[in-house]
Nucleic acid binder design. Structure first.
Lengths: 408, 408
DNA sequence: CCCCGTTCGTTGTTCGCCACAACAATCCTC
DNA sequence: GAGGATTGTTGTGGCGAACAACGAACGGGG
């Protein structure tokens, strides 16, 4: 985060202001409420400089003053706090799941104000889903105050998303190929705001690093176990994207010679062994119960014997992930959340079987700190990103009367 | 590159100067000779600002003016060129190979002034190797001019290197565990300069991105095929390191159920199938000929039939790399260089067999642009890195009379 | 309860660095 | 050779962060 705008570019002094303003806002966003004294420490700037930045953000109606934190111990004048304004700008986050879509209005600062959910039929048309989501968006923005600005929309997609333009290259569960879903949603809303799309696992990693189980951790992997298996990777504090944004497709790592054929055309892919269909088959669920798999697993208190080999294979595959990325935390999302809860020992054993010792020693497996909201909140974080790069420009591109225009 | 000094830190205005000074120097370093007009374009700064920066670097004796490039076509006053000074500061690069060590004196700007090589006995003691390298270093710095400053030493190691302190955690070929090789070399030289250690594949990727086959490419993977197989990854223009620096260990990806046992304790690792021992066995070389394998492969003009399955497996394994990192270029180094030259079709076929279509479409397999010097020059680039972050500080920490002190 | 040391916010000033404008220096084209 | 175009140079201006000084708000000790 907070990298240079473009590699090799010189730094201008308005760039300095932009950067400092954005960084300060990011700190407030991350921490909820920060004292100005702490901001001077974290940012390494002078008190007076911080004061100037705070004043400007205050004038932009982004932040507000808070009374000094109570219950302090140290001597000296207490430092005044700064926090995000409740009626400040917000984003709309969309989690496009396999069988349902969730939409939430999320304020700068990470607070979820409203949320709405709708089911999605199997193999839907993109325009259908776009219309459904547009309806949900209208629902969640109705409660918006008149002054609040819509900064943008973030959409989490279970599939390959091209980073440059947000094109959905391939979403196997939805059976979509090369769908420009961002423009479909905007058209359904007849609105023109910044819209960003991202892979669900990538966004899970993002939110867990911001406000979940990996706060402050630079190197983490979020493994999303659904019908397919994907990984979102943050390395050195930045999202691993690859040239087109497809990085992290660990589901098709070769895993098991006895594995069945995979939709990718190959055989023995990891996700054929540990994906939702394999779990369902082990539990003797019928194929149409796969969408309910999460609930089924959630209700279990002990692991049935049939799950254990799958958990072992989960661990073995995680070993590859650990060897390759050397993260300090691996977060198990999707169906792997209940699976890991039930079979922690097997997963750990599988990991130990194949991971290299130095990498294994520095890694910790854990559950998502945000539970099932990781992906949704990651979409919000993605949509918020521009405001931390350039608050002024981002606000200039925001829509101020979104609730009115969407109601009409 | 050119990231913020630390994430979340504010930008100070001396930081601006540092950054601009370093970035300008990096451009000159990368391009060999640049016109000031081009610098204004690339860095997005004003002419007068560039002039000021150039003046300061000139006063630091880092760069010199060059006559305007001849044979131009455009109208207007020709822009004066800037280039690195010949007698400017330099670094010492060390490539610690399996059976030999190469040391070179490399100037800022990338020019290799002197080089020396020595063989290394099998399974050597660290202090032995340190003494050998110290001798080579003394050789290569003798020709140094009296004013030139030694900025630091960069060492490429075939093994796992901990990023925080440069500790060699494990180098299988050398049979080293937890060796603090940097201090050993410095002790043998009785010198105190910045010394940096890095994994050989990581450094191959670095130099290929700077001055090799992937100039300007942000996402690339350098695969180093030796006894083991490792990958150096650059993503978004930055080195993928992982929390401790072990990222990129792709050699132990599970590849083949029929594969033999691996020294890592597992079975069927990719490197047991495509590593040097496997190649040697396919060619019916005896084990003691493995160090000469490179020469043997180099002499071949057509591929013997026995190599083809290995090339297929190389391609299949590369598919995993491509799926995971989504690079735009994969560079095949080490023994994979001749192998790919001989069996390009098989490697490509293996890749096509398992790589996902979107990722495969955006990748190109290629040979190292720097040939066998990739790793060595990568070590030089690593050692030079600090001077691009803060030229003034880096020069302050340099040793000016290294040649005299090492001769005595 | 008062004094003192500590820490912090505020204000006015200074300093550093980049942008800008005007001018001089070249080069190309016609 | 005149004119246009591009660039280096120089002096000026403006912006933003650092700095110093002061007052404010707290804890602690007598």
């Amino acid at each position: 985060m907070t990298g240079a705008p473009r590699a090799g570019t010189g730094t201008n002094q308005e760039a300095v202001r932009r950067h400092n303003l954005g960084t300060l806002l990011r700190h407030v966003h991350d921490s909820g409420e920060v004292s100005r004294a702490e901001l001077t420490g974290r940012m390494g700037l002078n008190r007076s400089t911080i004061a100037g930045l705070v004043t400007e953000l205050d004038e932009l109606a982004l932040i507000e003053h808070a009374s000094p934190a109570t219950g302090r111990r140290s001597a000296g004048r207490p430092s005044a706090g700064v926090r995000i304004r409740e009626d400040g700008p917000y984003v709309v986050a969309v989690d496009l799941g396999v069988d349902r879509a969730t939409v939430a209005r999320v304020g700068l600062g990470g607070r979820v104000f409203d949320r709405a959910t709708a089911t999605i039929p199997p193999e839907p048309e993109a325009w259908q889903v776009g219309a459904t989501i547009a309806g949900l968006v209208k629902q969640v923005v109705t409660t918006t105050g008149p002054d609040a600005a819509l900064l943008g929309i973030g959409v989490a997609v279970p599939g390959l998303v091209r980073r440059s333009d947000g094109l959905i290259r391939h979403a196997p569960n939805l059976d979509w190929h090369d769908v420009s879903f961002g423009s479909i949603v905007l058209a359904a809303l007849s609105l023109d705001v910044p819209i960003a799309l991202g892979n669900d696992a990538d966004l899970g990693a993002l939110s867990e690093q911001r406000r979940g189980a990996a706060v402050g951790v630079g190197d983490l992997v979020y493994i999303s176990g659904n019908v397919g298996v994907g990984a979102g990777v943050m390395s050195g504090g930045r999202r691993l994207e690859g040239v087109a944004g497809y990085a992290g497709e660990v589901g098709h790592l070769y895993h098991d010679p006895r594995g069945g054929p995979c939709h990718c055309g190959s055989r023995g892919c990891w996700e054929t062994v540990v994906g939702a269909p394999a779990i369902a088959e082990a539990l003797r669920c019928s194929a149409d119960q796969v969408p309910r798999l999460g609930d089924i697993l959630d209700e279990m208190s002990t692991a049935p014997r049939e799950l254990r080999p799958i958990a072992m294979d989960l661990g073995r595959g995680l070993a590859a992930v650990v060897n390759i990325f050397n993260p300090s935390i691996v977060i198990l999302g999707g169906y792997f959340l209940p699976l890991f809860r039930l079979c922690r020992a097997e997963v750990t054993a599988g990991l130990a079987e194949r991971a290299l010792v130095p990498a294994r020693d520095s890694v910790r497996l854990t559950l998502p700190g945000l539970g099932k909201d990781s992906v949704l909140l990651g979409a919000a974080e993605m949509a918020l990103e521009p405001v931390f790069v350039d608050p002024v420009a981002s606000l200039a591109g925001a829509v101020t009367d979104a609730s009115a225009r969407l109601a009409g």
